[in-house]
Computed example of a mutant assay.
Amino acid sequence: MTKHISKCLLAILIALTACTPKLTDIEAICENINDSHYIIKWEVWPDVHGHVDIYASTDPKKFDLESQPIARCKISDKICDINVDKTPQVRYYFLLQFNNRYNYIVATRAPRIKNICNLRDLGGYENEQKKVVKWGFLFRSGCIHNVDSTGTKKLNSLGIRTLIDFNDHSRFSIPDSGLKIGQIKHLPINLITTSHIYERLKNETLRRGDANIFLQDLFITLIDSGKPLYREMFDILLDEDNYPVILSDKFGKDYVGFASALILSALNIPEETIYDDFILSNQYLDRRAISFDCAECSTDTQEAATALMTVRKRQLFCAIRRIKQRYGSLQQYLREEMDLTPEKQEKLQNILLY
């Protein structure tokens, strides 16, 4: 009788376990209020009961799951306030473990570092095969040369091994020796039109429409003019020893914006997500960073300056449309012009995707 009851209980337990819904999709975001206070929000599909354990680490590749989680919540809460040690020079990553089975890593999109504009992590984007770009592997930013001592410590905590700098020769300079970057790859994209447009701005002959057309044409020009340098960029990205990598130009929005779009496309990130990342520069770029004080200029000149510092979806859209007209698809452009064979693309995805 006892054995029969035990078998029945075991059968019931197995049945209940089998009926527990399998999580097919998890989405989470992380916002930092300050250096020690974070808010994590999540959604899961289908809805399941249970708990989520949250672990923190300063290394996105290492989480101590044997230790006590820093927080435990009901999955149905969908939000958790996290407080960690206040260490300004450290960046935290978080691993969410749902019902001791499903792991999801998340971090803030933009590490806060003073005097570095438009710095953000390209991690967390989901591709068409439900794989996710690894956090802490690939960053994009504006110029990093004006960072202060606290910012230097925080930037060093990212463990950057390779800086790919797209600034032209007139804007390029070696970062401060305090920045512990393994190697600097200077890939200058020199376009005469860029200096010409800023001269027109200073002479107050540039108008908002001119600025919009200039930026739109700039991205189309990069399709051909940037080919050798972006091809070299992919060669760097195909070496796993070069990571983490940071892509940089003056404001982190033009040459870096096009580079990021190519990389995300190579990872099979949906096109709309690529556009979303592109226009995020409007959120993280300080428009006052332009090297021209136009406070005393005419309204037309001020509007033109604002246009130069604004990212619009159409700028990238026109370039991608031109690529599709000429090559058929972004993937074909990557194969023909970036020498990104299917084997190389698979290698890149293995490096950068969970």
Results as ranks from 00 to 15, higher is better:
113 I>F: 15
70 I>S: 02
38 Y>K: 01
47 D>T: 06
106 V>P: 01
99 N>G: 09
10 L>G: 01
54 I>C: 07
108 T>S: 03
78 K>T: 12
32 N>V: 01
101 R>K: 12
19 C>I: 11
56 A>E: 07
96 L>W: 12
21 P>H: 05
26 I>W: 13
23 L>C: 09
84 V>D: 01
89 Q>A: 12
27 E>S: 13
10 L>M: 11
84 V>F: 09
80 C>A: 15
84 V>G: 02
84 V>C: 03
18 A>C: 08
12 I>L: 04
75 I>E: 08
35 D>V: 03
45 W>P: 00
84 V>A: 00
15 A>D: 01
6 S>V: 11
7 K>Y: 15
27 E>G: 15
91 R>Q: 06
70 I>D: 09
49 H>D: 08
92 Y>D: 00
6 S>G: 06
71 A>L: 07
53 D>K: 07
82 I>V: 13
95 L>G: 05
57 S>V: 12
65 L>T: 13
90 V>S: 11
60 P>R: 00
113 I>Q: 03
59 D>T: 06
81 D>W: 15
59 D>P: 01
24 T>H: 13
28 A>H: 03
21 P>V: 05
109 R>F: 14
62 K>Y: 13
97 Q>T: 14
37 H>S: 06
78 K>G: 13
77 D>M: 10
42 W>Y: 08
12 I>P: 00
77 D>F: 12
70 I>M: 04
102 Y>K: 08
70 I>R: 02
56 A>M: 05
108 T>H: 02
101 R>A: 07
75 I>D: 04
17 T>I: 15
76 S>I: 13
55 Y>N: 00
107 A>Y: 14
86 K>G: 06
113 I>K: 00
57 S>G: 05
100 N>M: 07
9 L>N: 11
45 W>D: 07
109 R>L: 07
93 Y>S: 04
33 I>V: 07
95 L>K: 05
12 I>C: 03
107 A>N: 08
72 R>Q: 14
100 N>Q: 12
87 T>D: 06
70 I>F: 12
107 A>E: 04
90 V>Q: 04
35 D>H: 09
50 G>V: 07
79 I>F: 13
27 E>F: 15
34 N>L: 15
14 I>W: 08
82 I>W: 13
67 S>T: 03
49 H>F: 09
109 R>N: 01
83 N>T: 15
79 I>C: 14
6 S>I: 15
18 A>Y: 13
86 K>Q: 11
46 P>A: 07
19 C>H: 04
72 R>V: 13
104 Y>G: 01
42 W>S: 00
42 W>G: 00
74 K>V: 14
34 N>I: 10
44 V>W: 11
47 D>S: 07
51 H>S: 08
32 N>I: 01
27 E>A: 11
70 I>W: 14
6 S>P: 11
39 I>M: 10
11 A>D: 02
106 V>N: 05
31 E>V: 09
43 E>I: 02
102 Y>M: 07
92 Y>T: 00
13 L>V: 00
25 D>H: 05
77 D>S: 11
99 N>T: 08
45 W>S: 08
11 A>N: 04
71 A>R: 07
104 Y>N: 04
48 V>C: 01
47 D>E: 11
12 I>Y: 04
15 A>V: 00
20 T>G: 11
39 I>E: 03
100 N>G: 15
94 F>H: 09
39 I>C: 04
15 A>C: 10
111 P>R: 06
108 T>W: 14
64 D>P: 05
19 C>G: 04
53 D>Q: 09
18 A>V: 12
